[in-house]
Design a protein around this nucleic acid. Structure first.
Length: 378
DNA sequence: AAATACAACAACCGCCAATGC
DNA sequence: TGCATTGGCGGTTGTTGTATT
């Protein structure tokens, strides 16, 4: 279909926008709306391509954009949603009101990714970098199936977010978001959703089922019943209820982030010292000679096949929260796993690790459950 | 004070799906 | 049904500001 780049025309300006250009674009859109982006530059008297105008508007000039530092809550949301959705920035952005996908993407690339990296966590997979690859038991099969469910749900979320955007573009339309959403949902899900959590959470529950099911096998006691969290894997029509323990685990995650973030200002905004804290924790771990922070058999439960699609798409790994927990909590509490003699000897109580995983996923579930009512995703 | 390195963010580019004709 | 157009998305690059030497 050989489409020529929209900016090929000679005479079109590129590069940073000037205040005058901003003013022109702003004034035009306020008066006429953007209409066709391709036609807009001419009408607005701008020597820009339509695409450039659209990006400038959506990423910078739009009045409902919040700028400035990300709060702890926003950071938490980004990390969790990235673990869930991967680099689907637009989908993540729909859950962070007033933040653009571009801003979130930049923040991830310049801040969060580096932090995870320094901690020895692969920011793509959210797994420890030296993680083993394959689980030989049957769990991997379930996990692979679940990855497909996760992929499907991600696609559905994207589509739904798209509907929301469309509805916003047509505010006067008689077709409300709810109607559209309902129509959409009815085509792919027998359960109505806007009022409550999306069925996508069943995937999370199922994930938990896999994780905690294995925990039960490995840990015998102390594990969480697979039926309790994800036992209804075969019931795609079930909806998530905010069960006991979900709320507390969310706060656990917040706590983890907060603990890792050094000092915060009054608004919960992370200060730069946080980088040092994260680094210190990593150094602490390195200093005490922990190169592989987790029992290998527990790292290995997620096979490579669980990754969805290509490298940019992935399904989450519970080891993520293990890492957080181990680094941020155990380091300060004298956890025997971090002592010279007790490091790997905790295998017998592997359920602890899965308990951490449970907390991680519960935190996501809680995030989802507590999401603002205007959130288009969940 | 100048040079260099690094960080942060705005903007661009190419691809793709949806849509209209 | 097929082609052209449009808008959106994610990856990447370029620019600017700040810290360090």
């Amino acid at each position: 279909m050989g489409r020529s780049p929209c900016c090929d025309k000679v005479g079109l300006k590129k590069g940073p926008w000037t205040p005058e250009e901003d003013q022109k674009l702003l004034a035009y859109i306020e008066e006429h709306g953007h209409g066709s982006w391709r036609a807009l530059p001419t009408k607005a008297g701008l020597q820009r391509c339509g695409k450039s105008c659209r990006l400038r508007w959506t990423n910078y000039l739009r009045p409902d954009i919040k700028r400035g530092k990300f709060s702890l809550q926003e950071e938490q949301t980004i990390i969790q949603l990235h673990a869930l959705l991967g680099n689907r920035w637009s989908a993540i952005a729909t859950h962070l009101p007033k933040r653009t996908d571009n801003e979130i993407k930049n923040y991830w690339n310049t801040h969060l990714k580096k932090r995870l990296d320094k901690m020895g966590i692969d920011p793509v997979t959210h797994k420890p970098k030296n993680d083993a690859l394959v689980s030989s038991d049957g769990q991997s099969k379930n996990a692979a199936n679940l990855s497909h469910m996760a992929q499907w749900e991600s696609a559905r979320l994207e589509a739904e977010a798209r509907l929301v955007r469309q509805s916003k573009l047509r505010p006067a339309s008689s077709t409300s978001y709810q109607t559209q959403s309902s129509e959409f949902a009815s085509t792919c899900s027998p359960v109505q959703k806007p009022a409550g959590p999306s069925r996508c959470l069943d995937v999370l529950k199922a994930w938990n089922g896999v994780v905690w099911g294995k925990a039960n096998e490995a840990g015998a006691s102390g594990g969480v019943s697979a039926a309790g969290i994800g036992g209804d894997l075969e019931s795609p029509t079930s909806t998530l209820s905010s069960g006991a323990g979900v709320g507390e685990s969310s706060s656990t995650f917040v706590e983890l982030v907060r603990n890792s973030s050094g000092t915060c200002d009054g608004g919960g905004t992370m200060k730069d010292e946080s980088e040092g804290e994260w680094r210190n924790l990593t150094e602490y771990r390195d200093g005490i000679g922990i190169s592989t922070p987790f029992p290998s058999e527990l790292q290995a439960w997620e096979p490579e096949s669980m990754r969805v699609g290509n490298s940019s798409e992935h399904v989450p790994c519970g080891n993520f929260v293990e890492k957080f927990t181990d680094l941020l909590l155990s380091a300060s509490s004298g956890d025997p796993r971090f002592s010279d003699d007790g490091g790997e000897s905790d295998n017998g109580s592997g359920s602890d690790y899965y308990e951490d995983n449970k907390n991680y996923w519960n935190s996501i579930l809680n995030l989802v459950n507590s999401s603002p009512s205007d959130s288009p995703i969940f």
